[in-house]
């Protein structure tokens, strides 16, 4: 389980996170939703110790992050994480070099899944394919937790479909996933849990199926209630 406990974060004088708490379980897809600039990416960065927090605590399976944690959790940012001049094959080799948990078989499978060409250079890829390479490099690690920042933003329709297919496949099965998005529409059926962020706080944390079953509300209905209050 990933536990984010009362996390506060300031940028200069501006408090961007004002005590954010939520949990994300293994085997579940947790979706962080909020308008742009609400600090979703900051939360993911903080979990990975890519940015310091001012207050609070983040635990991964009960422990704070250290170098070994990176064999257990991975982060797929909305940015290129390899050098532009590298080919996809070279990027995969780099991962294989450093990570014990790199799964070459799965990487090869993902290449096929996303219809990527190993010899393509990262710099030559479309936005959609760049996102797929990022996903490939993250998902081919045998890690328990995967964090994804805006995996669907700014991507063509067919790439979106390909990426959405990841969520319904064995590539995700049994892992704990946190994804951020500002647009939940077409992934509503893919997620287990929703964490709504507003004004630097968690305004609601709920199960998508429960909201539908108990309250008869879609995720968007709940969002509307929370954000248009």
């Amino acid at each position: 389980m990933i536990e984010v406990k009362a996390v506060e974060k300031k940028y200069g004088r501006k408090k961007i996170l004002k005590g954010v708490s939520f949990t994300a379980k293994k085997g579940e897809i947790t979706c962080l939703i909020g308008i742009n600039g609400v600090g979703k990416t900051t939360i993911l960065n903080a979990i990975m110790a890519l940015t310091p927090i001012n207050k609070g605590q983040i635990l991964i399976d009960g422990k704070t992050l250290d170098k070994h944690t990176f064999e257990k959790i991975t982060f797929i940012p909305d940015a290129i994480t390899m050098l532009p001049h590298m080919t996809i094959a070279e990027a995969m080799e780099f991962m294989d070099d450093f990570y014990h948990c790199w799964n070459q078989e799965r990487a090869t499978e993902l290449l096929g899944f996303f219809r990527l060409n190993q010899s393509d250079r990262i710099s030559s890829l479309s936005k959609g394919n760049t996102a797929k390479v990022n996903l490939l490099l993250g998902l081919a690690l045998d890690v328990d937790y995967v964090l994804m920042d805006e995996p669907f933003s700014g991507i063509d329709m067919f790439s979106r479909e390909d990426i959405a297919n990841v969520f319904t496949s064995h590539l995700i099965e049994n892992r704990g996933v946190i994804i951020t998005t500002h647009e939940v529409g077409d992934i509503e059926h893919l997620i287990d849990k929703v964490v709504l962020l507003d004004d630097g706080m968690v305004s609601k944390e709920f199960s998508a199926e429960e909201a539908r079953e108990i309250e008869g509300k879609s995720v968007i209905d709940v969002m509307r209630e929370v954000y248009q209050r």
Binding site: G27, E28, I29, A164, N165, F167, T168, S169, H170, I172, E173, H189, L190, I191, D192, E209
Partner: peptide
């Protein structure tokens, strides 16, 4: 369950349920 999730494009946990 896995196949169903995949074909119906739903979360595997939902298919399980």
């Amino acid at each position: 369950r896995r196949e169903l999730a995949n074909r119906m494009k739903v979360n595997p946990n939902t298919a399980q349920r």
